[in-house]
Write a protein that binds this DNA or RNA. Sequence first.
DNA 1: TAATCAGCGTGATAAATGTCACTTTTGTCA
DNA 2: TGACAAAAGTGACATTTATCACGCTGATTA
Lengths: 195, 195
Amino acid sequence: MHELLSLNVRQKISLSTQEEELLKTFFIPKKLRKKQFLLQEGEVCQYAAFVEKGLLRSYTVDKKGNEHILQFAMEGWWISDLFSFYSGEPSVYMIEAMEDAELLLIKKDRYEDLLQAIPSMERYFRLLLQNNLIATQRRLNDKLSLPAEELYLKLIDTCDSIPQRVPQHMIASFLGITRETLSRIRKQLSSSHKK
Amino acid sequence: MHELLSLNVRQKISLSTQEEELLKTFFIPKKLRKKQFLLQEGEVCQYAAFVEKGLLRSYTVDKKGNEHILQFAMEGWWISDLFSFYSGEPSVYMIEAMEDAELLLIKKDRYEDLLQAIPSMERYFRLLLQNNLIATQRRLNDKLSLPAEELYLKLIDTCDSIPQRVPQHMIASFLGITRETLSRIRKQLSSSHKK
DNA sequence: TAATCAGCGTGATAAATGTCACTTTTGTCA
DNA sequence: TGACAAAAGTGACATTTATCACGCTGATTA
């Protein structure tokens, strides 16, 4: 069950065999079925979740009822509402399983304990946050500077597993465009590609 | 010179007096005059910069020559191109002083040394990255879900010092809209407020 | 197997935002 | 202080994207 997590940690820092065993004791395994929620708007985010299997998304719902996807998380990724997790404030995000999923959860106080028990985990999480920030900044910059079509093109050639596992209307929601616009962009692309 | 940095660090972690002195030795003071660059597109980002005084921005320039501002950094903030700094790859960002500025710079290898010398700095940077990620995610979510007017309103009531120190066309560029659109939004707001 | 639903496509139209050209205002500094 | 540059405003128009309404298809399930 914890293989992916260990692997993931060992890619960033080195752990002794004891530490690796110790690490596992901090996590609670949890299964979610498709369409179940790990977190709903208004709740406090109790857990940070590492995805061993499956695919999840975090999203907000605006006044008109439209969903806006902040993040997808598949095998080897973390998902949580950092702000709510850390501050104890209610969350504005929903976290939902898009496929049956197996997670490893850690609660906030256990997370702090973990950093005490294995100080090098501080480094692991720093690197994790750093990579996440780099990726999020890049996505923001793209959203600030690129039209819908280029956003889509950039997505499909940087990260091909997402478009394969995720329905189009959710890709649209991730890019911040409507499903209709995405559908038209794809039509245009396929016709201009045929020439 | 290093007062703000010490203060900033001590807000997140506790340091002994020796550590605090030691900390200072890792940084190079640097002054920039308005419109000077800390980093230009194509260069490798050598430094992470802590702002003691002044105001800087990081931005990209697209094919049409339009600028898109990723970040402002004022007193007590960090600015850098994390990806380039960490990977040694050329940067796509420009970092420019918008006001005369005083910075504390740290090079990558010295940064690694610092983390060795004062392990609790690992925690400091983790918390820094975490807060930065939370803010960037929030900004991305806003950009995905809100129209121009609401983006602007949200900016002026969350962070009032930026609009005061930054010309409007750069606010527009930060929000990902044109200066004309922002100008019209402001006109509308002022007329509807008068009623 | 019929019924329902999620996902995708598409046409007509509306709304938001961008572009371009120009003017006015404000700020800077020689 | 005068001259120049930068910033901001504005009108006309173009483009992009959203909205709404509807149809089609394939999967799920009652």
